[in-house]
Each structure stands twice: as structure tokens, then as C-alpha cells.
């Protein structure tokens, strides 16, 4: 079913290197990857494999060194900082390992934080949208709590609510269970899975835990900066498609 949907993310020969004191450290090599709308994907790999870097690039937090990245068919390398910020505000969202919630701030205020930077959603709709997102992660009763009064699992669910509030095209989750005990981890993964299965949300999960990765329909292994395996082998077809387009 996901196969028929149009591609949301397409990368061709995407490379990334870091430069320190003139020394080039390559991190990603020739990544060809297509993610269609509605997919739930895990990107797996040991630490240092480049999986987080790939997610940062796909999520417009970082830019590739070479190769191309098309988001909804649009080339992204020509975008300015403000345009990238606009995409982050409207199209993509993140769930981080360390939750990254604002301290001394309520659940609701944390959840509606992205709406402050949203270019089109009016201020009057913030609370309503925020409460709707909080409801989806089952924290309605805790909406007025300060985030430091919550358990780790509840904090991560707050972060998920925050990632839902702008109705983005794709949610990137970077080791979302990394700081949680297994019971809370399962709870958080179930919330993510429900968002995919019931609402058809596109989710890209980055993890090094096999059990977490298995919640996804499709698992991509990254090793030493290259895609090692892809449970749904799109690679060849995709390469052909790109050649046709050119």
C-alpha cells in the first residue's frame, strides 16, 4: 500500500563529510534512499555508523556535502536558512533521545512551542491543537503539569505530542527509547506505532536496538556510512527511475 504513495523523501548519491582543521572525515557515502508517504521506517546501525547524521540531513537540521535531496519532489540544496526553518516549522518534526523539553514549563506550553514559529497557524488555535496532540499521547490529565513532574515515559510522550502539533509530513524519532526503561519504551513505541497504523503518519525511527527497530515495516541498516541492507529493496528500481527522470 505504501508503495503506491508518492515519494516524500528521495536522496541520490548523498554524501556527507565533516571538516576539522582542514581534515575531511567522511560520514555518509552515496546514500540512495526513497521514503514514501505513510511509511514507518527504522534506520539501524551501530553508533558512529552515520545514522544520526542521515536523519539530521533528512530532517533539515544539517545539509549534505554532495548529492541531491528531494523533499516532495523539490530540491533542497538551494534553500536558504529561513526557508529551511520554515520547512522545519511546517513539514518535519523530531522526537529526541533526551526529550529536549523546556524546564519549568507546562506540558501544554511545551507541546505548543512549535506553533509559536508556525507561519500560518493563528495564535487562537494553539491551545486547541495542543490539547488535541496531548490527547493523542494520552496525557490530557497532565496538560498543566510541569515537565519535570513527569516520568521519563510521560516526558517522551509529551515530546511526541509536540512533534504532532504542527501536523507534519514526517516525524523523525532519534533513539526515542534510549533514555527509558523497557516498560516506558514499549509504551512510547506503541504510541508511535498507533500514529502510523491509525493515522497513516510517516515515521522515520533511528535506533540501534533491534527490538525497537522491529516496530517499523521497513528496516534499513547503515554500516560505515553506507546502506548495508534494506528490507524492501527499492534501490535498483529507484536508480532506474532517477535515470529516466534525467
Amino acid at each position: 500500500m505504501a508503495k503506491q504513495n508518492p515519494p516524500l523523501i528521495e536522496t541520490v548519491d548523498l554524501c556527507k563529510s565533516y571538516f576539522n582543521d582542514g581534515m575531511e572525515t567522511p560520514v555518509l557515502f552515496d546514500i540512495d534512499l526513497t521514503i514514501r508517504e505513510g511509511e514507518f521506517i527504522s534506520i539501524m546501525g551501530p553508533s558512529g555508523s552515520g545514522k544520526s547524521t542521515l536523519m539530521h540531513i533528512l530532517g533539515f537540521l544539517d545539509t549534505p556535502t554532495s548529492g541531491s535531496y528531494l523533499f516532495r519532489g523539490q530540491k533542497t540544496r538551494v534553500l536558504h536558512d529561513d526557508e529551511l526553518a520554515r520547512i522545519r516549522a511546517t513539514r518535519v518534526s523530531f522526537v529526541f533521545q533526551a526529550f529536549n523539553l523546556l524546564p519549568r514549563t507546562t506540558v501544554l506550553d511545551n507541546v505548543i512551542l512549535p506553533l509559536l514559529y508556525h507561519p500560518t497557524i493563528p495564535a487562537s488555535e494553539r491551545t486547541e491543537r495542543g490539547m488535541k496532540a496531548i490527547e493523542q499521547v494520552g496525557l490530557t490529565e497532565r496538560a498543566t503539569y510541569f515537565t519535570n513532574q513527569l516520568s521519563g515515559g510521560q516526558q517522551q510522550r509529551t515530546a511526541i505530542a509536540r512533534s504532532l502539533v504542527t501536523e507534519p509530513d514526517v516525524i523523525f524519532a532519534d533513539e526515542p527509547t534510549g533514555n527509558l526503561d523497557s516498560a516506558s519504551g514499549i509504551q512510547v513505541m506503541e504510541v508511535l506505532q498507533n500514529l502510523h497504523s491509525k493515522q497513516g503518519r510517516t515515521i522515520v525511527l533511528v535506533t540501534h536496538e533491534k527490538t525497537t527497530a522491529e516496530y517499523a515495516e521497513r528496516v534499513i541498516h547503515i554500516l560505515d556510512g553506507r546502506i548495508a541492507t534494506d528490507t524492501r529493496d527499492f534501490k535498483r528500481n529507484h536508480a532506474k527511475n532517477v535515470k529516466h527522470l534525467k
Binding site: 520554515r86 533526551a98 512549535p114 509559536l116 514559529y117
Partner: peptide, 16 residues
């Protein structure tokens, strides 16, 4: 730094 990073990640521009 983390707060600033978060704000940027959720769409804040440098100007904001």
C-alpha cells in the same frame, strides 16, 4: 544551547 537548538529544530529562524 539546547533550548536554542530545540527552538531552531521546531522552526525558529535565526532572526527569532
Amino acid at each position: 544551547t539546547r533550548e536554542i537548538g530545540l527552538r531552531k529544530a521546531v522552526g525558529a529562524r535565526g532572526h527569532d
